[in-house]
């Protein structure tokens, strides 16, 4: 029975990949319906990453649209060597970061938003029922981006440093800062 279940799971994965490969292949040839199916399949994860990186619903929606528009143009670059979802995730992170640079550049320079608002936030009750996503969105931009990429998406600090155009040490420092702030937000005392 156990063996049968393992075979069924394995078969699902194989058929799932096969149908996704077919969709990718069709979309590469200009089939919009196939591309729509890929969109339906992946929009949840793409939007989640965009939202956690930008911290804003509107910006995350715009960035998600930009990701799929560029994906249509560059789908031919996907060589099938890695999982499509892994490749798409990396594309999403890079496009969103680039999009944020373009959108937020002047606003940040004018109003220096990086540190605004952190201290106004009340600490949560020290409980196990914590909405981590809501707390992550509260983090200042650079700390949030590093935290999302490292802790949630599994990127190495070396990769993050290159993506965000910062030193590896800065990435580690921002991650530490993010953890400290999350600790404050959760109302956890220093041990």
């Amino acid at each position: 029975m156990e063996h049968t279940q393992q075979r069924v799971v394995h078969a699902n994965v194989v058929f799932g990949n096969k149908s996704e490969n077919e969709l990718i292949s069709k979309a590469k040839k200009g089939d919009k319906q196939a591309f729509r199916s890929l969109y339906d399949e992946h929009i949840g994860r793409v939007y989640a990453l965009c939202y956690r990186l930008t911290g804003e619903k509107g910006m995350a929606e715009d960035a998600s649209q930009e990701v799929f528009i560029q994906l249509w143009k560059k789908l031919g670059n996907f060589d099938g060597q890695s999982q499509f979802s892994t490749w798409l995730h990396s594309v999403t992170a890079n496009i969103t970061i680039s999009y944020m640079r373009k959108q937020k550049g002047w606003v940040q320079r004018m109003f220096n938003l990086e540190n605004s608002g952190i201290n106004e936030m009340p600490a949560e009750e020290n409980s196990t029922d914590v909405d981590l996503e809501a707390l992550v969105i509260r983090l200042p931009e650079r700390a949030r981006m590093v935290f999302v990429l490292h802790a949630l998406e599994g990127y190495r600090h070396e990769d993050i440093a290159s993506m965000l155009n910062m030193a590896v040490g800065s990435s580690k420092a921002q991650f530490f800062r993010a953890k400290q702030l999350l600790k404050d937000f959760m109302g956890v005392d220093d041990e």
Binding site: G44, Y47, E133
Partner: peptide, 10 residues
């Protein structure tokens, strides 16, 4: 959650 759906149709 790994997924989150946008509020409007993109």
């Amino acid at each position: 959650s790994k997924e989150k759906q946008p509020e409007r149709d993109l």
